[in-house]
């Protein structure tokens, strides 16, 4: 026994300096310049979404018809649109939607895909068979067409549009979760969780979920970007955000209609969108690298 004590104290001091894994992941993400900038950008976006009215230079909904399509100036940093509204203020107002819309749709997708995927991965059976076929069916539809059909039933509007996008996302997420769960369920610790009397539900949430967190997080951040684009697309064709609310998609639409009167006005909303999607993807990539998942090309 004394020999064990001696050897184990040796390893104890050697490993005591190591930290828990989640902290390491966060640290390694923030340390990379690209992902640090991306995280900063998303934080800025969240700040604008919350504190928008306090920092926006003008009321985004006040029209000034004598001052349509104004160019860039110190009063209107990004100019004005076809009703003379301040574009910078509208970009800021729309950032609220840029943050909430992906949250709604990814939230819906998680609500549907996560429990089903976990259950199907661990237990298989009827749930796996039914949910799997359903997922195949939804995935065989072009995503936007599917979303259009759902919005046609629910009616236009931001929440309905994002619900639709969430439903479209659910099968992909289901597949990712199911696959990851299948792999983890092979591990003995899942069996030993069952062997200490853990129920299926507890095994799934306490023992399996933390172990599939890495691929899940990657998928979620990338879906956030895709959701933003989906929102913009639906708003562009008038099924998402309804006026007078601003969304980058609806702004892009009006800028597109008026591009001969004001060629510059496609730039602000377009750039905002590109940067945001890029930020989400960069974060997704660096989570993937930080947790050591293989890049699939």
């Amino acid at each position: 026994m004394t020999t064990t004590a001696a050897t184990t104290t040796g390893t104890a001091t050697a490993t005591a300096t190591r930290r828990s894994r989640p902290l390491n992941v966060v640290r390694s993400i923030v340390r990379r310049p690209a992902s640090a900038v991306a995280v900063g950008f998303v934080l800025l976006l969240v700040f604008l979404a919350i504190a928008g009215p306090l920092v926006s230079p003008h009321d985004p909904e006040v029209q000034d018809l004598g001052n349509r399509f104004a160019g860039l100036s110190s009063t209107h940093l990004l100019g004005t649109d076809e009703f003379g509204r301040d574009v910078a203020s509208r970009i800021i107002q729309a950032s609220r939607i840029a943050v909430t819309a992906p949250l709604i749709s990814v939230g819906v997708a998680l609500l549907i895909g996560l429990p089903l995927g976990l259950w199907a991965g661990l237990r298989g059976g009827v749930v796996d068979a039914v949910a799997g076929r359903l997922a195949d069916t939804i995935l065989s539809l072009p995503a936007l067409v599917g979303a259009l059909a759902i919005v046609a039933v629910l009616g236009p509007g931001l929440v309905n549009a994002m619900l639709a996008v969430g439903i479209i996302f659910a099968p992909g997420l289901f597949r990712v979760v199911r696959g990851a769960t299948l792999a983890v369920a092979e591990e003995t610790f899942v069996e030993s969780a069952v062997a200490i009397g853990s129920s299926t539900r507890r095994t799934l949430w306490v023992h399996i979920l933390p172990n599939i967190a890495a691929p899940l997080l990657v998928q979620v951040t990338i879906l956030m970007g895709v959701a933003l684009l989906a929102e913009a697309s639906l708003s562009f064709i008038g099924l998402g955000v309804q006026p007078p609310d601003a969304s980058w998609g609806s702004m892009l639409k009006s800028a597109y209609t008026n591009q001969f009167d004001s060629p510059f006005s496609v730039v602000p909303s377009g750039v905002a969108m590109v940067l945001t999607v890029l930020a989400f993807n960069t974060i997704g990539d660096s989570i993937r690298d930080a947790v050591g998942l293989r890049r699939r090309t």
Partner: peptide, 24 residues
């Protein structure tokens, strides 16, 4: 059965390295 597992009957597996949950 759940009440028996881990209660009056304990179980130890072959591979200690994979029998413990790495995230707990």
């Amino acid at each position: 059965l759940r009440r028996v597992r881990g209660g009056p009957v304990g179980m130890v597996f072959q591979e200690p390295m994979s029998s413990l949950n790495p995230t707990m």
